[in-house]
Design a protein around this nucleic acid. Structure first.
Length: 323
DNA sequence: AATATGACCAACCGCACAGCA
DNA sequence: CTGCTGTGCGGTTGGTCATAT
């Protein structure tokens, strides 16, 4: 026996709202407020579920909402907060006046995730892919290293495929990263080339791991160097030239300076353990309350108006914990 | 010109939690 | 303490439009 549905599904209209419905809901709320969502559709003369009315109001009709494109500053805020908070859209949205959690979530899923991937940054951990590879490599005993390419490919296949299939990859760039160009005549990788491309990526990753002598650095094997040099180079080559973000990944990885976007998108592993501890402590107050979950965490005002102001942390030191 | 594919975003769904009787 | 109700939240779906083939 499940939960009682919030409304009679048979008698309610679903799907897109009409201007007439919008008007009915808006004028009713303007007169009576939003006290009981279950009664609002009935009183407003709408054949809608109360929940649907609430959603329509909070996500679209509210007069204080901003409609339109996200500014660079807003995007940067989202990325920075996401690196700390993860998918807590309501908390993130609370820091963006006029934006709803749905707006932020949609914008993240459709735009920001791809932008970060295009820059060679994992949108989940906010670390460069190169650092993640390095972290995996350093946790593996030598006999396990051959499996790294397989594992890495599993992790990043989607991002790589996206880049390979959507962005132009010149033969020069492919050669730079140690791969034979898939097709020198056609710059777009076709669907049937994917498997071959994946195999070549695997080969390139394996070679970069196993044979650092062939890397541009010509340094003895060092996971950090190999990760930064080889994979940063790889990701740099993949970075979309038309993405609107002209940051070389190698500078992201090796220097960690540059624009605010640069810093917030790529906190990297430069964060000190102390800072991470501070962050963790901020997420767990002195009463032992777990800020990482539960209702308090959802309360953006509580979190951001407290003395523990996350904004005070230099953005390059904001690093989300590995999930 | 027709069709396929992808991007975007509004809306829905189910779960969790708070408040109340 | 328990059960019910209302609300908030994050994940997912589906419709529409734009672009590519």
């Amino acid at each position: 026996m499940g939960r009682i549905p919030c409304c009679e599904k048979d008698n309610v209209k679903r799907g897109q709202w009409t201007p007439e419905e919008d008007h009915k809901l808006s004028s009713y709320i303007a007169q009576h407020g939003t006290r009981n969502w279950r009664l609002i559709p009935k009183h407003a003369g709408l054949q809608r579920c109360g929940k649907s009315c609430r959603l329509r109001w909070t996500n679209y009709l509210r007069p204080d909402l901003k409609h339109g494109q996200f500014s660079d500053a807003e995007e940067q805020t989202i990325v920075t907060l996401h690196s700390v908070l993860g998918n807590r859209w309501s908390v993130i949205a609370a820091q963006l006046p006029g934006r709803t959690d749905n707006d932020v979530k949609n914008h993240w899923n459709t735009k920001l995730k791809k932008k970060l991937s295009g820059m060679g940054i994992d949108p989940v951990t906010h670390k460069p892919f190169s650092h993640l590879i390095t972290e995996i490599a350093t946790t593996l005993a030598p006999p396990q290293v051959p499996h790294l390419a397989e594992a890495a490919l599993g992790c990043f296949k989607d991002e790589m495929l996206h880049l390979l299939t959507k962005k132009r990859i010149g033969s020069y760039q492919m050669q730079q990263i140690g791969l034979t160009p898939v097709n020198t005549a056609a710059t777009h990788v076709k669907h049937e080339d994917r498997d071959e491309t994946i195999e070549k990526i695997k080969y390139g990753i394996s070679r970069a791991i196993k044979d650092p002598e062939t890397s541009p650095t010509n340094k003895p094997w060092d996971p950090v160097v190999a990760g930064s040099a080889n994979f940063a180079g790889s990701c740099n080559a993949f970075a979309a030239p038309d993405s609107g973000f002209h940051y070389g990944l190698s500078s992201l990885v090796n220097e960690g300076n540059g624009s605010a976007w640069n810093q917030s998108m790529c906190p990297g592993s430069s964060a000190t353990g102390d800072r991470q501890c501070q962050l963790d402590e901020k997420l767990e107050d002195e009463n032992g309350q777990d800020w990482k979950g539960g209702k308090e965490m959802r309360d953006g005002a509580t979190l951001f108006n407290s003395d523990c102001v996350l904004w005070d942390l230099p953005s390059e030191e904001l690093m989300s914990p590995m999930v």
